[in-house]
């Protein structure tokens, strides 16, 4: 650590008397409740439905209605799970003097920041979040607090995400320039897929999307919440012989499939990956993408720092990602930042 970062900062916060890091995850003592635990626990607050935050086997789950629906769709919960669905801003008493409410995080459908209030203090666990606009979920809401708990997935100055429109424009330009090729875009099934489809529609792409089967259920779930992606068809329901059908069109699938056996069925496929990591050329080449779309559902460097400052929180705890860089930069701003070194967060999912 650079010496200049070691300004007189008070690392500890009074909140540490009631919030602590355990092997299973972040733990709220008076409420006996975990936030996004990585192992099955009795009571869990779940910020959003991605697999590295939402897991199966918890006894009791607090989440937004959308997140609960996502967890059901992915079989993370069953009929024995005690579910408490809390819409944004609705408050509930967790017991032990702790009140919980959710504020939107702008990450994916239903994503939330968990706001915990106890003894006049407020801790906000942001989960994963972004500040860029997203037509498929509610925008991030700044909640003033005493301790802000943030991720640091893209916490390096090299990560400055471009507007999604410019990336979608790049894709549409390529489709016009290479009408003989099938553009196969690798997207995560939850969030990225739907955001890319919606943005393409807003940009004027009118043809039906062709989807890999793994994207179907979550897309339907988004539709049940009023999202409209226009027409889409499953690749598996189109006869194998009909290769020409996909020529010049757009196929969406999970990232691993863009150049695996599955993609052999398309005419002259052009593998494309949409992810925040695509900012780094070598990463894009490693994925063998012929086109890299920088599409991130996480805050970039500037937005991470801006957000931490806007919450006014004197203390920022950092869960995962490029912890060292964010910690260093926040301390230079006079914020008491520290890494929590949480384990079990997935680098790839974004």
């Amino acid at each position: 650590m650079n010496a200049s970062a070691e300004k007189k900062v008070q690392i500890s916060s009074i909140a540490e008397t009631w919030m602590e890091v355990r092997a299973q995850g972040l733990y709220c003592k008076p409420a006996d409740c975990y936030i996004d635990p990585v192992e099955p626990v009795g009571r869990a607050i779940i910020t959003h439905g991605h697999a590295d935050h939402a897991r199966s086997g918890h006894g009791e789950v607090f989440a937004t209605p959308e997140t609960i629906a996502i967890m059901r769709t992915r079989y993370y919960t069953n009929d024995d799970t005690h579910e408490t669905a809390l819409a944004y801003d609705a408050r509930t008493d967790l017991g032990g003097g702790v009140t919980l409410w959710f504020a939107s995080a702008g990450h994916i459908l239903g994503s939330a920041q968990a706001v915990l209030e106890y003894n006049g203090q407020r801790v906000v666990a942001a989960g994963d979040f972004k500040r860029h606009p997203d037509p498929t979920c509610a925008p991030f809401e700044v909640v003033p607090c005493d301790v802000f708990i943030t991720e640091a997935t893209f916490a390096l100055p090299v990560f400055q995400h471009p507007p999604l429109e410019s990336e979608v424009d790049k894709l549409m330009r390529s489709m016009r320039a290479l009408p003989g090729r099938t553009h196969i875009v690798g997207v995560y099934a939850l969030g990225k897929c739907q955001r890319v489809m919606k943005t393409l529609r807003l940009a004027g792409y009118a043809h039906p999307f062709y989807l890999h089967g793994a994207l179907k259920r979550l897309t339907e779930l988004y539709e049940s919440y009023g999202q409209d992606f226009g027409a889409w068809e499953l690749v598996s329901e189109i006869p194998r012989a009909d290769k020409g059908r996909f020529r010049g069109k757009l196929v969406l699938c999970p990232p691993a499939q863009i150049n695996d056996r599955w993609s052999r069925r398309f005419a002259d496929p052009l593998p494309t990956v949409a992810s925040g990591w695509m900012q780094i050329r070598a990463r894009a080449r490693q994925k063998r993408a012929e086109m890299a779309l920088v599409v991130s559902d996480h805050a970039d460097w500037g937005d991470l720092i801006r957000t931490c400052k806007e919450t006014g929180a004197p203390h920022v705890w950092i869960t995962h990602g490029r912890v060292e860089a964010l910690e260093y930069a926040l301390r230079r701003e006079g914020i008491n930042a520290k890494g929590l070194n949480l384990i079990g967060r997935d680098e790839g999912v974004e």
Partner: peptide, 13 residues
């Protein structure tokens, strides 16, 4: 740019 942040960035990229 802060040299520490630059070094972290270059190592990553």
């Amino acid at each position: 740019m802060d040299p520490f942040l630059f070094d972290l960035s270059r190592d990553y990229v």
